[in-house]
Design a protein around this nucleic acid. Structure first.
Lengths: 211, 211
DNA sequence: GCCTGTGAATCCATTCACAGCT
DNA sequence: AGCTGTGAATGGATTCACAGGC
């Protein structure tokens, strides 16, 4: 596969998807898996699996399949999840707290090293071992000092844009926004808007049509 | 636009997106908006906005634009969010608790009427006014009795499939799964898998390529 | 003149089908 | 024989560009 090809976003998201069952299969042996088997576990098409992987190299053996352990390693390398990432949370809402303590994040090497809130009554609290809630005014200083790479926004929708601006100004690399307000940033920074009321509304739409 | 046309999922998700700024614009007057303006607020293409809306009718006036209030009403009707929906949470993790108390859900008419957990030490607690945590064994009974339409799974990945099976068996209409394990259900039930570690991994991928 | 509604054109992603390797 | 890697074919979704109505 030619280098420099633009990789489709759905492909990246599926790579993450593939890694879940692979992790579970690590203990099994023989640790080989076919594209058909993996596809079934993830609910996708086998050709899709092969094409996704082929963007990055030839990881399989024709007539045999993929080695589970090696494939997982390769995927982690591609996704850059073979190392620790430093995050901060902005907005100590219940959701912010839940993410801070989230086992699935920890397990994958996403570590929260700072927490911010704008409401003075929340400052100084310790929602997690070693973390003290800091005011927005310290975002710039701490993002730089601690080398924070990803900012997670869990404020109310009204504060989301301000939070994003502060993070960008602090030189953050990427933003994940959980508030139901689209945030816009200048430059080529990476932003994921994960508004899950949108997903709920998709469910409501489908349910509303049936009865 | 012909009736019976299959509506693309992205269109539904964007309709939800459009409704956010429209709600904020409700108080303004004159309460008119052009596809271009709305598109800009949501970060999409103006033609996209018009095409999305055209699937469902002619809501605008040529040469003028869309009436904010009426457009919002129409969108809510399409998405079936002009009424209350009854939900339950399965898995009283931090995330489960955060969703239960989530203002954005409440504001949009999504009401949690039951909460379940499998761990006996959590049973009987009252995470929210009027709600008592119930064992999995009561899912079937309560989903039927309370008329619960949407089940939200916030268990560990290891319990997610069992939770889904129990919900389906109880006759639930739709499932939203927050655990990082794909759940599969038989039949035509609607399932949304909202694994946000997948989104994080997308950010990591992009960040990993830059420096 | 202005902005919607929409066929046509383009772009992107998925699936098929088979050549190629073990 | 079996399963990967991939060009070709298909299927969707987005964008363009303009006709149509205020």
């Amino acid at each position: 596969m030619a280098k420099g090809t633009k990789i489709p976003t759905p492909t990246i998201e599926r790579l993450a998807l593939y890694s879940r069952p692979l992790e579970a299969l690590l203990k099994d042996s023989p640790s080989l898996i076919s594209s058909e088997k993996l596809a079934e576990l993830c609910g996708v098409n086998p050709a899709q699996v092969r094409k996704d992987l082929a963007y990055f190299g030839e990881f399989g053996v024709r007539g045999v399949g993929y080695d589970v352990k090696e494939l997982l390693q390769q995927i982690k390398k591609i996704l850059a999840t073979d190392r620790e990432w430093k995050l901060c949370i902005v907005g100590m809402t219940n959701l912010g707290y839940a993410l801070l303590e989230n086992e699935n994040f920890k397990r994958r090497g996403y570590t929260f090293v700072a927490a911010f809130d704008s409401r003075s009554q929340n400052l100084g609290k310790k929602p997690s071992s070693g973390l003290t809630v800091q005011p927005f005014s310290r975002i710039k200083e701490l993002v730089g000092m601690l080398g924070i790479e990803i900012g997670v926004i869990t404020t109310s929708p009204f504060e989301a844009q301000r939070a994003a601006d502060l993070l960008v100004d602090a030189g953050i690399g990427a933003i994940m926004n959980f508030s139901p307000a689209q945030v816009r940033v200048k430059g080529s920074r990476v932003v994921e808007n994960v508004d899950f009321t949108v997903k709920l509304e998709n469910l409501a739409y489908h349910l509303g049509k049936i009865p």
